Computed example of a mutant assay.
Amino acid sequence: MRPTRISSLFPRRADAFKLCRLCQHRAIRTSARLLAAPSPQTPAKSSPAPVGQSPASYKAPTKNDGFSLETLGRPIGFHRPPLPGKNSGEDTRSLKERRDDFVDWGNHLQRRKELTKAVSKPYFRDFTNVQYERGKSFLANPRVFRADRALFFPNFVGTTLADLSKPADTTLVLLNRISLVSVYSSDWALKQVQTWTSEKQNPDLCRILQGSRGIAQPVEVNIETNRLKYFILSLFKGRLRNERAQEDWDKYFFVRKGITDEIRENVGIMNAKVGYVFLVDGACRIRWAGSGDAQEEEKHFLNKGLKTLISETAGSAKTNPKAQAA
Score class of each variant (00 low, 15 high):
18 K>N: 10
296 E>M: 08
172 L>M: 01
91 D>G: 12
217 Q>D: 05
81 P>L: 02
208 I>C: 03
26 R>S: 08
326 A>H: 04
117 K>Y: 08
204 D>V: 08
145 F>W: 02
20 C>Y: 04
61 P>Y: 06
301 F>P: 02
77 G>I: 00
230 Y>V: 00
165 S>H: 13
99 R>A: 12
293 D>I: 14
28 I>W: 04
64 N>R: 08
321 P>A: 09
306 L>E: 04
173 V>P: 00
48 P>M: 07
73 G>S: 10
60 A>V: 10
176 N>D: 14
240 L>C: 06
194 Q>H: 10
231 F>S: 07
174 L>G: 08
161 L>S: 04
135 G>L: 08
48 P>I: 02
73 G>C: 02
215 I>K: 00
53 Q>S: 05
165 S>G: 12
125 R>A: 13
159 T>G: 15
181 V>D: 01
48 P>G: 09
19 L>M: 10
164 L>P: 10
72 L>S: 09
176 N>Y: 13
69 L>G: 09
189 A>V: 03
105 W>C: 08
166 K>Q: 15
226 N>G: 02
208 I>M: 03
173 V>G: 04
94 S>R: 05
163 D>C: 15
50 P>Y: 02
151 L>R: 01
320 N>S: 06
31 S>W: 14
48 P>L: 05
314 A>F: 11
246 Q>S: 15
109 L>V: 14
84 P>L: 06
222 N>A: 13
302 L>C: 13
13 R>Q: 09
87 N>V: 02
38 P>C: 07
55 P>D: 00
74 R>G: 06
162 A>V: 02
184 Y>H: 03
8 S>W: 11
264 R>N: 12
290 G>L: 04
83 L>F: 01
240 L>R: 05
291 S>R: 01
24 Q>G: 10
307 K>S: 09
82 P>H: 13
225 T>A: 12
300 H>Y: 11
126 D>N: 08
233 L>H: 07
176 N>T: 10
36 A>F: 12
235 L>Q: 13
155 N>D: 13
187 D>C: 10
88 S>V: 03
164 L>D: 14
249 W>K: 02
91 D>S: 14
92 T>R: 02
210 Q>E: 15
142 P>Q: 03
87 N>L: 01
289 A>M: 04
211 G>M: 15
204 D>F: 02
47 S>A: 08
19 L>A: 12
232 I>F: 03
185 S>F: 07
34 L>Q: 07
258 G>Y: 01
120 S>H: 12
299 K>M: 06
212 S>Q: 06
145 F>H: 02
323 A>Y: 00
325 A>N: 06
214 G>P: 05
171 T>M: 11
234 S>V: 04
150 A>P: 02
75 P>Q: 11
85 G>P: 03
302 L>G: 08
115 L>S: 08
319 T>Y: 07
297 E>W: 14
117 K>V: 11
209 L>M: 06
283 A>P: 00
150 A>F: 04
40 P>G: 11
136 K>E: 11
303 N>P: 13
174 L>C: 14
174 L>D: 07
40 P>D: 09
43 P>M: 03
131 Q>L: 15
264 R>H: 10
253 F>H: 04
311 S>D: 12
3 P>R: 11
274 V>Q: 01
81 P>I: 00
89 G>P: 08
37 A>E: 07
263 I>E: 00
285 R>V: 07
36 A>P: 06
312 E>Y: 07
195 T>V: 01
208 I>P: 06
224 E>C: 13
199 E>C: 12
148 D>L: 06
160 T>V: 10
124 F>C: 10
